[in-house]
Design a protein around this nucleic acid. Structure first.
Lengths: 210, 210
DNA sequence: ATTAATTTGTTGCTTTTGCAACTGAAATGT
DNA sequence: ACATTTCAGTTGCAAAAGCAACAAATTAAT
């Protein structure tokens, strides 16, 4: 039995009929949502890109996750506390489906196809999410900036089935994503280039070593 | 509707009758499993404690997750690659349930209660797992050892509803869990004590400031 | 009970990372 | 088309973290 899921198919089943699911539009740089304790909102990106970000008291920004089409997010996946203010910011114009976690376990009156498919597939979606977060942990637990960069590049390379790949955000954001200082990261990228380990053209990188 | 799940109850429904689920015993320090690509094993700890660990080429050990009773793990939650050898090591004598991911989506012939409860609740279990991994990310993305320690202590404090709490592993392992050098961590703990921010007695810590 | 092994605690020294500050390039807005 | 903002790229200096090595304390093993 194949437990893979084709998320796009599933999402295309959405229709305006389902009363439990809202579709909303957000412009670039708008805040899509701020995580609130006790609320259990679930969001799916139909179109666009967004980041889940945290700003520390000292102003340091961390990109916790980067979302593209078909990605899912919301406070159900987070233990929201007073110490961590989390918000999701649109990086491009976005089209978002919003519903409550409860509705995943309760049929809607219209018994719509989107809703029933959502219910059926929710565990697979959640398992996929665990996988993607674990990949992030894999990178964050690396001890040096160099290892983090190479770990991340390796992942992108594997995912794109090519030694050359595009980093999906600006280098400034990449530093926030790897949770390191930008200038220190730039320096490390310079060393990696000098040592012939990587090549770089804008945000297109190539891994030269295995 | 309440979407919380009482995992212990669910696990107690296990009976030897279900042909798809095995129960195995492991002694302290034994390797429970090594993650293998394409296999989709799921394990639940009935009794004992275990760590998911990664050893880097340079010998550095990272504790990716720490499991206690009722925790769930297995390669379904991981994108297993050649670059990351992951294994789960028993830290105490363990009693483990093992089954394949497929069986979560297929009834067993005996139609046993454990199995059907597993199927029903799997998405909730997976969502809980996302939450717990995200808490880990929250800590790993902190920039300094001090912030990582305080972030982790805060979490333990919140979880135990008390300013005083026990760290569930040795300080050596804690360093591997926070992904930092042990001696540097010890130094930071010393500073935190000197500054009156924490108190420490063995692996029992107290947070003195808000 | 004694030995062995592991864990804790500490410290000098080195390396890595972060911070601040600035320049030029690119993108964006009006 | 020009001004403004954001992003990339650099660098000196300071701070933090890592490494190595060791002694003392604890825990486990025989």
């Amino acid at each position: 039995m194949d437990v893979e899921i084709n998320l796009p198919d599933f999402i295309n089943k959405f229709s305006e009929k389902c009363a439990n699911v809202q579709k909303k539009f957000f412009k670039k740089n708008q805040i899509i949502t701020t995580y609130i304790q006790k609320r259990n909102q679930v969001c799916i990106i139909l179109r666009g890109e967004a980041d889940l970000v945290r700003y520390d008291f000292n102003g340091a920004k961390t990109i916790i996750e980067h979302y593209t089409e078909n990605d899912i997010f919301g406070e159900i996946f987070y233990t929201v506390s007073v110490n961590n203010e989390l918000s999701v910011e649109a990086k491009k114009n976005c089209e978002i489906l919003i519903f409550s976690y409860d509705s995943v376990y309760n049929k809607c009156k219209e018994n719509c196809e989107f809703h029933s498919t959502l219910m059926e597939n929710f565990s697979k979606i959640a398992v996929e999410k665990v996988k993607s977060i674990n990949t992030r942990i894999e990178i964050l637990t690396k001890r040096t900036i160099r290892e983090k960069l190479l770990g991340y590049f390796n992942m992108l390379s594997t995912r794109s089935l090519s030694r050359t790949f595009k980093v999906p955000f600006s280098l400034t954001d990449l530093a926030d994503y790897l949770s390191v200082d930008r200038s220190a990261m730039m320096r490390e990228i310079k060393y990696l280039k000098e040592e012939g380990i990587i090549e770089k053209e804008g945000n297109k990188f190539t891994l030269l070593t295995l």
